[in-house]
Design a protein around this nucleic acid. Sequence first.
DNA 1: CATGAATGAGGGTTCATTCAT
DNA 2: TATGAATGAACCCTCATTCAT
Lengths: 209, 209, 209, 209
Amino acid sequence: MSTLKASALKPRKPARQQRSQATIDTILEAAARILTKDSLDGFNTNRVAAVAGISIGSLYQYFPNKEALTAALLLRSHEAQAEQLKALALAMRGQPLPTAVRALVKLAMRGQWEQPRLAAALDHEERRLPVEKLLRASHQAIDESLLDLLHEHRHSIAPGDLTVIARDVIDIAKALMEKDADGRRDPPVDLEDRIYRAVMGYLVMPSAV
Amino acid sequence: MSTLKASALKPRKPARQQRSQATIDTILEAAARILTKDSLDGFNTNRVAAVAGISIGSLYQYFPNKEALTAALLLRSHEAQAEQLKALALAMRGQPLPTAVRALVKLAMRGQWEQPRLAAALDHEERRLPVEKLLRASHQAIDESLLDLLHEHRHSIAPGDLTVIARDVIDIAKALMEKDADGRRDPPVDLEDRIYRAVMGYLVMPSAV
Amino acid sequence: MSTLKASALKPRKPARQQRSQATIDTILEAAARILTKDSLDGFNTNRVAAVAGISIGSLYQYFPNKEALTAALLLRSHEAQAEQLKALALAMRGQPLPTAVRALVKLAMRGQWEQPRLAAALDHEERRLPVEKLLRASHQAIDESLLDLLHEHRHSIAPGDLTVIARDVIDIAKALMEKDADGRRDPPVDLEDRIYRAVMGYLVMPSAV
Amino acid sequence: MSTLKASALKPRKPARQQRSQATIDTILEAAARILTKDSLDGFNTNRVAAVAGISIGSLYQYFPNKEALTAALLLRSHEAQAEQLKALALAMRGQPLPTAVRALVKLAMRGQWEQPRLAAALDHEERRLPVEKLLRASHQAIDESLLDLLHEHRHSIAPGDLTVIARDVIDIAKALMEKDADGRRDPPVDLEDRIYRAVMGYLVMPSAV
DNA sequence: CATGAATGAGGGTTCATTCAT
DNA sequence: TATGAATGAACCCTCATTCAT
């Protein structure tokens, strides 16, 4: 119930030296590994430091508190997604909408499926922490790529704010994946088709009756 | 990281006197209130007892551990949903599909919107706890009502396992609501339309291209 | 670490009515059963009441606190032992010492072995609680029977205070049994012989070199 | 009634800095002091930490749970005993049996008498906890020393498995001491003689009539 | 800078005992 | 008298965070 200030989420130092950056990466990878294997249970700073092979004191040298560490993880994940999406949008230029959506779904599944617990945990933390400002740039980049992807098909898409539509599409895809990902080792064979169906349906269907 | 056994989630007593049942209700209401206001942070047994105005010992008379309390909350919520859905399915018999879907969306929003944090917290806990068996009956009832709702329109719906479709529809609706519900006081005006669009789109769109 | 007063160990009422006595017996039997199966772990008043099939309130009607219940159990056990010993002493009159000691060992083993956990728990509690006064009569009766048993052989026994000798004999026998009884289902075949040997050795051996 | 696993009894850290080892010693000494003064009542982790002058968190850095602390105490005590016994066995080589037994009794009394409640508590916990594996080495060392002590007198000792005999001897001595040690400040004057008598009697007396 | 020992507030749970019905 | 709901002190234990070395 502790109230957090967005300002507390910034990493502690600019880390201009490459040794620092390497340590930070090690920490973030350790954190990601723990979340991947154990979800938010078992995700504590002492454990992260241990898995990273550094002392707990060092961890706090780079992150002023646990939330900042989580936020950094979140930022990293969003930046990676933004980048992938950007590449995808570029590659799909000139392709028909179904092809583009298929590719989008595949991308989403690749990211989410490999580490369902990590993805779910990050999602959860994104809601809990005041990270809006921190992630704004990534969110915008993601929005832009999606707009880029959708804009050339805007005439095949039912009317509506394309940005909102883009975000909804992401959330719909995530929801279906999270549900099915839970404990399983492999995704159900029909999952990709169902997500495709949901996304395409949403895009094509007019919202008013 | 503690591993839980499903068997530990059962409530403790059959509650013979009505005083007991009243206490149980008080506890569950206190728990729900805390989750509504503070989400999972601040949801601890001592606080629940304090808010309920009872001693911590009393809480543990009725629930063998915190998880059992959460599970009871979960069960209660699912049972309520199942009941509402059943009534809805009955009322929508003979109505055209769009009308039925509209009604479904309105129902979902009413449930979710009033207590978005509670709903999100319960969702999260449902994934974390081994409650499958406990909730099986409710899940089945929900499935049946949805099937009931969809079956008469099966010819307007793209082919696929209707049960899977029904569940996906629920998840899609939930996802859009959770995202928009987060901190806000009132739902965005267009939310209902967007959910309707997503659900109808999923129902109508064939999954294979 | 609570300090106990011997006066707190008395049962609450004289229990002149036979219904009361029956309830008391039920309670004591439940307590004994729990100690037999689970040792001191799991020996709590609520559980005793539950196993006895009465309410916790009723239990406290007959025993002012947990210690009083334990004390009653202890008394009962000592009284039974005293009685058995008395009978044994009588039966062994005129028998040679080895025969008497054999019989004594057999008796001890019968009592101890059947319920090793109960016996150990009671032993432990006897040391912890201020029950000396309460058990004095039983202790005296036991001493007397042992004296009775030993006195006619006093010329075969090494010199020393016969009462002290009698008590030591009991403790020696108990020690060997408790050690061997621990988890096993059946006593080692040689246990009786070893106890016999220890007891006879102690009796016959002069203490000074 | 909680079931314990032997694996949970290991200490937590290897204690790299000497500060750690000092803390561990402080903790163990505090624990021993509490058991010495108050027996198992009042032996709780918070109190141990308080008496040790450290925080409760520090205690749990070194011992994963209360049982592990108890086990460490047990191990320490057994190791000390093993060492003393070894020295004694060495010193008694070539001495007549009565001399050796006298020395043994004196040693046992010194250990037990000074801290009768500690000794009794440890005995009790040794039965309750799954420490067999942990203490195996110490037990073997003790057995060996006793064998060493007894073997050269095997012709004066009644036939039987010398190891079993050695253990019985220990148990007999302990039993007499525990009984007499209870609350008293000083041991009864005749205690040493009585223990000597019991032990010698057991050694010399043939078990079968 | 790195280390890791130390801290202690916080939170889950038990169980002897009381008391209104 | 019996009942059993309610009480709360007492424990066990975790983990984010600090700070002396």
